[in-house]
Amino acid sequence: MYYFQIFSIIGSIVLFALVINFIRLGLLKEKYSVLWLAAALVIIILSLKKEILDYIAKFLGVAYPPSLLFLVAFIFVLLIILHFSVVISILHERNKVLAQEITLIKSALKESGIDIKGRDKKEKQDNPRI
């Protein structure tokens, strides 16, 4: 076993453990952990079974098999970032809809005599209607 194998196995195990721990602490939703765990597992397998790594490297024409690990890790990182971009876009849209609803609800409340300005609390106390 080469040092690079030991190094990447340890690294992947640490990553795997971190992700699991984050899920356990509620800091990470399972939904967003799948790609991280998959990346860690694939890298562990490729590092443990050097034959697989060598085989794929030969097939792809990569002269130095360990560099294939970088490629695999890079592809996973790209996938994870792309996933985040999609998630951010969804959140952006939902956030917009929420803010618009709040805007409309506040306006409707104001029309029925309830003024929730939020910013200047002083005015609220002076307002006898509330």
Binding site: K96, A99, Q100, I102, T103, L104, K106, S107, E111, G118
Partner: peptide, 9 residues
């Protein structure tokens, strides 16, 4: 009637 966005959107 004035509608106020909570932040710049």
């Amino acid at each position: 009637t004035v509608l106020h966005h909570p932040y710049n959107m």
